[in-house]
Write a protein that binds this DNA or RNA. Sequence first.
DNA 1: CGCCTCCTTAAGCACTTGCTTATTTAGCAT
DNA 2: ATGCTAAATAAGCAAGTGCTTAAGGAGGCG
Lengths: 103, 103
Amino acid sequence: MLHSMDLKTFEAKAGMVAGTLKAMGNGRRLMLLCKLVEHGEMTASDLAREVGLSQPACSQHLARMRDEGLVSYRRESQMLWYAIADPRVETLLALLYQLYCKD
Amino acid sequence: MLHSMDLKTFEAKAGMVAGTLKAMGNGRRLMLLCKLVEHGEMTASDLAREVGLSQPACSQHLARMRDEGLVSYRRESQMLWYAIADPRVETLLALLYQLYCKD
DNA sequence: CGCCTCCTTAAGCACTTGCTTATTTAGCAT
DNA sequence: ATGCTAAATAAGCAAGTGCTTAAGGAGGCG
């Protein structure tokens, strides 16, 4: 249980989980993740257009989420196809949808 | 479903959910929330001591989470007893524990 | 009242975030 | 090579974050 950890371990765990939440805790990034859940895989330019971001702004958000391990991509000629990399993130998004978006 | 929303509604929903994630997306605030789940109710000074924060820093984190509707408090003479205000946050924390902290 | 305790709020400051525009890299096609 | 498209990266800047110290409220007790 969480309360059986010493403070250092607790801090470390909390910091890591908070990193994930922080990476998800932005309106545009959350929209990108939702689109990826919906479509499975999308190109960077499609993602940018669908959530109303400029190409560089979108790329920076994707880079941030790559660094945090939330998304990954595969190259297909010029295009990069992005997808959610961590199943736990999909689980989280499913719960968020159920809690905040259902009905 | 999310993908049936128009962009404006999607933005608004995502922004609100992102607000909650952002409020949770900080190591110390996440620790505070965990402690509140664990103990049900705690005073501000107890919270500060348990997560290793100065008293003003802790108060500012609690204010932030109050503004976002995550926590609330009741006064008992000089002491303020804090608790988690939104059952959805407890549900989220339970999933986070299961996904990231179990074993 | 004065004084103490518990807690919040304010002010200041280094650091981070999220956009912009401009530039660069990578791949495909002339 | 040149040119074109898809995407990342860099630089710059306003706004937000998270601490610090210092100053205010709010309630109990002499």
